[in-house]
Design a binder for these strands. Structure first.
Length: 564
RNA sequence: UGCCCGAUGGUGUAAUGGUAACACAUCUGGUUUUGGUCCAGACAUCCUAGGUUCGAAUCCUAGUCGGGUAACCA
């Protein structure tokens, strides 16, 4: 890292920078990203990934991927695979991949060392007894009656725990620290519990499993990690982290905590996300409504947009809630630069141009992306019958409505001026067709006589348009803080019923027939859409709305109440 | 009830004792064949009270508010 290249560093980078400058760890920087493979990664993990891998990149160091798989009950290889995929998709490659379970034997040996030093003991207390003996934050704890077992007895018991001579919960190995500590984590924490379960990697090889605190720091140490970055809730665990490593007298990484990401209108709790998936509230972990990395991917977010988001959110030690609008900004900003403009009419209304010859068509040439000249041009067919957006027509329009009205004139984007003469309705009074005329003199989008139009609307040739299914996504929760559940309600009651609105009969321009999975487009005046990676097929296109365009008109409408 | 951590505009961050910066959001106005983009402008005396200092958002003290924390989860 070239010092002073950055105007300001967040407190972690500052600290790492200082350590490097002071020659700590021989100036080495080695971080790790340590997910538990018990679910899919979400945007909060992305923040941590960007931090850990970013630190390694910026300081010429390394970053490991380590699966923190010490709880056989919850973990699965499905999650291991998805985690790898998501990190790579974000554009990072780890220097080494490990599993905490790689260290089970080493950890076991170290535990024996602690027993021999008289710093750990086998305890027979039940969960309830342990809780009772631990005391409270106003009450001192009491020593376990098994705290003073001899080293020999502990060694024997511990090896028999490993051999499977005891049932689940019958015994634990505990660190002998201080039952009166102000820090509850230091009141003789459990190091091992007995769990006769099949582990996704070690199978039935073990029936005792190390707890987080006993596994994490030691794993860091084994991997020569220099800076062990984690979230704030582990702050009180740091003394224990330091205690274990201090006892073992091995390489001592520095744990540093930062505030985890909270986004408005979003639920980030892994437990609750799991519940959404298991309960069928969403299609799966990669449902575009989910704040998972795979959900964002399927929704049409780009890795770049997520990097940009992570950067803007910053790293601090205080909890805050980031407005979901920032997320939207980041993806719009990127897609605006790279997405091809196409026409998609979401709610089609038939327009017949009475003065355009029947059966004739012409090709209109138009730019692919005004933000990128190199993107070239494309051709779209124009003819007598078109579809326009239903919301672009109003029979009785307010003054501020710049779109099509009876007797009014608008510009058809990249084509001609169009005037509406007559509205055709069905028996229910529903508008089914507009009879219009166009002005052939306005081919360039301007009138030779200099008359102006206020609005430009998009359209697609009825004869050429392709049918598509379009899935409109919105925030999963309408409440800014979905963890704030009103009395008598369940958090799931707060799910936004309109988080997904499916449109079956959208009409898109013919060019889109060749669109392939994951491709992103701007549907002009509508938003950014991508081809759904799971359900879209040639001949049966499915688009996901990634994000809308900013919409000053609808905002104004909402503000002013009903139009008119 | 203990212990730990935090506090800058509506929101997220910056200023590393020298006189509040950037972005989002919001509102104005301009450009525009996307009511998009782009451009211009508006919007805070830094939780409170004391103190240290020539000078404090930054240091100290007290208070207030917020968060975390007592799993054989991570």
């Amino acid at each position: 890292m070239n010092e002073s290249e950055h105007k300001s560093l967040d407190f972690i980078r500052q600290r790492v920078s200082d350590d490097v400058a002071n020659g700590k760890n021989d100036g080495r920087v080695h971080t790790r990203f340590p997910p538990e493979p018990n679910g899919y990664l979400h945007i909060g993990h992305a923040k941590s990934i960007c931090l850990n891998f970013g630190l390694a990149e910026e300081f010429g160091g390394k970053c490991n991927l380590r699966f923190d798989d010490t709880n056989p009950d919850k973990e699965d290889t499905e999650f291991v695979d998805s985690i790898r995929e998501d990190i790579r998709w974000l554009g990072f490659e780890w220097d080494a991949e490990y599993f905490a379970s790689d260290y089970f034997e080493k950890l076991y040996q170290w535990a024996i060392e602690l027993i021999k030093r008289g710093n750990a003991y086998v305890c027979d207390q039940s969960v309830e007894e342990v809780r009772e003996y631990r005391g409270g934050w106003d009450k001192p704890g009491k020593n376990s009656p098994h705290r003073d077992r001899t080293v020999e007895e502990n060694l024997d018991l511990f090896s028999r725990m490993r051999k499977g001579e005891f049932k689940d919960g019958e015994k634990t190995l505990r660190a002998k620290i201080d039952m009166n500590s102000d820090n509850m984590n230091l009141r003789d924490p459990a190091m091992y519990r007995i769990r006769h379960a099949t582990h996704h990697r070690t199978g039935d090889q073990w029936c005792i499993y190390p707890n987080y605190d006993w596994a994490h720091g030691q794993s860091d140490s084994i991997e020569s990690i220099t800076h062990s970055v984690c979230t704030l809730e582990f702050e009180q665990h740091r003394p224990l982290y330091d205690w274990y490593i201090g006892q073992l007298e091995v390489h001592h990484p520095q744990q540093i905590e930062f505030a985890k990401l909270v986004i408005s209108n979003t639920m980030m709790s892994k437990r609750k996300l799991t519940e959404l998936v298991a309960g069928g509230f969403v299609e799966g972990w990669d449902d575009p409504r989910m704040p998972t990395i795979s959900g964002f991917r399927r929704r049409g977010f780009t890795p770049e947009s997520i990097h940009s988001f992570a950067k803007r959110v910053g790293i601090t030690k205080h909890n805050s809630t980031t407005d979901i609008a920032l997320m939207n900004l980041c993806i719009r900003e990127h897609l605006n630069r790279i997405a091809s403009r196409v026409t998609g009419v979401l709610d089609p209304l038939k327009v017949v141009i009475e003065n355009y010859p029947e059966g004739e068509f012409e090709m209109r040439v138009t730019g692919v992306n005004p933000e990128d000249e190199t993107a070239g041009t494309r051709e779209v067919p124009f003819g007598r019958e078109l579809y326009i957006e239903r919301s672009d027509f109003m029979e009785e329009a307010p003054k501020k409505f710049f779109r099509l009205t009876v007797g009014g004139e608008v510009r058809l984007r990249n084509a001609f001026f169009l005037k509406c003469n007559e509205v055709i309705k069905d028996d229910c009074g529903e508008i089914v067709e507009l009879r219009c005329t166009y002005d052939p003199e306005t081919s360039g989008g301007k009138a030779p006589d200099g008359r102006k139009v206020k609005g430009t609307i998009h359209w697609v040739s009825a004869a050429h348009a392709i049918d598509a299914e379009v899935r409109l996504y919105d925030v999963m929760f309408e409440n800014e803080d979905p963890s704030d559940v009103p009395e008598g309600k369940d958090w799931k009651d707060l799910i936004n019923p309109n988080a997904l609105v499916v449109i079956q009969n959208a009409k898109v321009e013919p060019l889109l027939a060749d669109a392939s999975s994951g491709d992103s487009f701007q549907f002009v005046r509508n938003g950014y859409f991508c081809v759904d990676s799971k359900d879209s097929q040639p001949g049966k296109l499915v688009f996901n709305r990634t994000v809308t365009l900013k919409d000053a008109w609808s905002k104004q409408q909402k503000k002013g109440g009903s139009p008119n």
